[in-house]
Design a protein around this nucleic acid. Sequence first.
RNA 1: GCCAACGUAGCUCAGCUGGCCAGAGCGGCUGACUUGUAAUCAGCGGGUCGGGGGUUCGAAUCCCUUCGUUGGCUCCA
Length: 638
Amino acid sequence: MIRITLPDDSIREFENPPSGMDIALSISEGFARNCIAMEIDGLLKDLNTSVDKDANVRLLTPKDTESIEILRHSAAHVMAEAILRLYPEARLTIGPVVENGFYYDIDMQSISEEDFPKIEAEIQAIIKEKKPFIRKEMTRNEARERFKDEPYKLEIIDSLEGDIFSLYEQGGFIDLCRGPHLPHTGHIKAIKLMRVSGAYWRADQSRQQLQRIYGTAFFDKKDLKAYLTLLEEARKRDHRKLGVQLDLFSFHDEAPGMPFFHAKGMAVWNALLEYWREAHRDAGYVETKTPIMLNRVLWEKSGHWENYRENMYTSRVDEMEYAIKPMNCPGGMLLFGMKPHSYKDLPHRAGEIGLVHRHEMSGALSGLFRVRAFHQDDAHIFMTPEQIQQEILGVLQLVDRVYATFGLDFHLELSTRPEKSIGSDAQWEQATSGLRSALDAYGKGYQVNEGDGAFYGPKIDIHIKDAIGRTWQCGTIQLDMALPERFDLSYIGKDNEKHRPIMIHRVIYGSIERFFGILTEHFAGKFPLWLAPVQIMLLPMNDDLIPATEALKKELTAEGLRVEVDTRSESLKKKVRDAQLLQIPLMVTIGAKEIETKTFAVRTLDGRVIMGMERSSFLEKVREHIRRRSLSPEIFKD
RNA sequence: GCCAACGUAGCUCAGCUGGCCAGAGCGGCUGACUUGUAAUCAGCGGGUCGGGGGUUCGAAUCCCUUCGUUGGCUCCA
């Protein structure tokens, strides 16, 4: 007698060891049709696994969160089978599930997206056959024999421990796999190949280049459609596209990977920095600036010459070797090291909007998201060990304040000591527990990435979530136990002895260029009033009103507002349309009436028009909206 | 750096199984219209078809090479 406990704590008894399907059938036939896998005492298994002892069993249907991964994993097998049918000489390597889909790395001839339709047709044929996934187990020797013509599979087998290997077979296709899988291929209701790219076997450049074919799969065609719609939405928001449309920035062959910011882009940039300075002043920071080029001696001292050389631009001037800084820290170290410090001066918070250059691989470049020259909103904080918790907490609060201003939610990740690291156990313990207790005190919760810290210290990464749910790592707080040592930094403690300060690097925007790009996509180009490149577009009703409108522009500009006049001899409709397309938050129509009564006819981006607004009240509300850095599109609500 | 795709007017794109003067829409300019909230009409300019080399009677179209862009690998702000 086998007793199966279901999630609702009900118990079902079976004479013989039941499979998941048997259990599902004991509930209802419709439910059973829907089940795709099961969980036995917390372990995911195939639905046809026999439960041979009393156990807690959960039957999975497409609604369960784990199900989609099982589906995609199975989809990867189906894709692999389809490819082998079409390209018998192909050799499979690995085919994991990734966010939003799956891929399979295959050693085969180069293919392109044009080959997708025929592969997809083959996949559909396999799905239609509703082939069951059958699990088999083999010993190491049997597995090696079975895959003797599959060099990559052999290498995988040899790299794994244990003596029993599981394989899954559907139709004539068999693959080494841990499982679990769907009951049969027919459960794959929606599948689509997304793209193909190169990848190296075991991510090693010196090894075989493979074809990585990406696909995605869903239980419902509607879900696939929704996913494709999201991709479409992301494409519409692409900052590279909006950057051209809104005249914000550009790239030129003469400086690949190094953005040029246009006047309108700089308006946004300056608004970002103005806010940054305000927030940092409030948080007790001073601002510094260090040169972008420093000599080799400095970089040898900091360790960059040894560890970061291949990413640095170097130059020889007057027989002296220089490097353009890839990071701001060494300059910051020099500044702190200039004069003695008392414990009473700590913590010392020095911010720097530092321009750094890093020679990224050409293939890594991508719009403003990955560039070779960028500005970091850096800061170096020097403190006593006792101050770690309080200081980190202060940074977290600043992070909170800044991201909230943009309507960005975020989560935190703590990375701890990696295998290769410098510093003593005690130092790491003190540093890590300092970060941990700051995170605990902050109370937002965080994820721990064991062993993911930098070699010179643990760190906290801040991941923001944008308007369409994508996450980006921007801010980071890194504790550095190496540089104060290398630069022999010290402060005089209460005991009148020299002590080594604790130092952190931290950024909040991260790279201003990248943050700019993220914000552009987050807002879909519809920047809030305080950030908008052009805040007000004045629309004269006819050409005779242009001089009067230009005079108004002058007045509004003097108020610190970013204003333009549409002087074209176009219809009002046309001028309104073009201002809308440029996502300008305020359109102010100037007709004879407005001049006469000293009022404004104001239109906001949501299409609402308010006629006859007193100029003083317009100004007051606009100023207040900007001062509060409000995100609301309703500038004249009430 | 590697793999793949792409590069035609300021922008978006057509032409690309080689062959009439390389096209369209938008933008720009000129003129008319003088407009009350998402495209007024007409006319006119504008292109080394990314650069270089080659095949060919003939190349935007085919080949080689180079630069750049995009998607990945990798790396990371």
